[in-house]
Design a protein around this nucleic acid. Structure first.
Length: 278
DNA sequence: TCCCAGGCTCTCT
DNA sequence: AGAGAGCATGGG
């Protein structure tokens, strides 16, 4: 479609993209560090950069204080702006339920997050609720991340690898602390083969991540989808399992296969917002 | 208050 | 291989 990116003043304006809505994308449970103020301006830190952004009257997205080179080198990939979501929606819409779910969350895009941040964030997410996940991640960044304009960066694996479970007490992550440290050590010591995660068979990639304590199939798929751009990953959490029973009588339709990760987010969002009271 | 949360590990069959 | 308890903590 007619995606246009223009530099206006100090800002970047993204227009002509109907499948990019900030609330859908930044508040759908795939990333935990974005928040909106009362005026609807979102702010957050990703990839070591602080960004404020908002929606204009015609649905365009404005990235504040951003250059075209910053956009091209980072934000374009972060917001997955090379992918044609309207084509995906058209393809999956031969299934009526998927069509409805996609319409419900049509502004969702799969964010391309920092891999280590995605791994740790979804380790923290296990048996936890989203408000508390956000709190733990915020405390993790404040305590161990580098301070920058606008907040704290997500801590590096190298930094966390040197910590003990007691050191992590201030973030109140409970039994997950030992898992965070194990992930940090395996990343810092290069025990995780990122080539496999990026390019290997999806089953091999999942197994590679499951070398980390506290990482099972669901956390691994979240990391692959949100951190490594593996669109075929399909994280199965409690909401998805419930939705498959309620909405699809226990079996996903074939339309869900090709862009599984995107479809997963549509279903997850639909299930969570409607609470499946349909 | 008490149930439960974007699961996983460990143990017991 | 499959089922079930236990896990830290606190949001609703």
């Amino acid at each position: 479609m007619g995606l246009k990116v223009t530099e206006i003043g100090h800002d970047i304006v993204i227009s002509g993209e109907e499948n990019f809505i900030l609330k859908d994308t930044l508040d759908c449970g795939q990333a935990f560090r974005w928040k909106a103020d009362e005026k609807g301006v979102w702010s957050g830190i990703a990839g070591g950069r602080y960004l404020e952004l908002y929606e204009g009257k015609n649905g365009e997205i404005i990235l504040k204080n951003t250059t075209i080179s910053e956009y091209n080198s980072f934000w374009k990939a972060y917001f997955d702006l090379d992918r044609d979501y309207s084509k995906i929606i058209t393809e999956i819409s031969t299934n009526e339920t998927l069509k409805n779910a996609a319409e419900f969350g049509k502004g969702i895009r799969i964010l391309r997050q920092e891999p280590f941040e995605a791994v740790v964030s979804f380790i923290i997410s296990q048996n936890n609720n989203i408000p508390r996940i956000k709190g733990i991640i915020e405390r993790l960044c404040e305590n161990f991340g580098e301070k920058t304009d606008g907040g704290y960066l997500f801590p590096t694996a190298e930094c966390l690898a040197g910590l003990s479970v007691e050191d992590l007490a201030p973030i109140r992550s409970g039994f997950r602390a030992k898992y965070i440290i194990d992930a940090a050590q395996k990343y810092a010591h290069r025990e995780i083969n990122e080539h496999i995660l990026l390019n290997g068979e999806i089953d091999s990639a999942r197994a590679e991540l499951e070398k980390i304590k506290g990482v099972g199939p669901k956390v691994a798929d979240c990391a692959l989808l949100f951190g490594y751009g593996r669109i075929e990953a399909f994280p199965r959490d409690v909401w998805i399992k419930r939705a498959i029973e309620v909405l699809f009588q226990g079996k996903l339709p074939p339309e869900a296969d090709r862009y599984a990760g995107v479809v997963q987010q549509y279903i997850f969002n639909y299930a969570r917002v409607t609470k499946l009271e349909i």
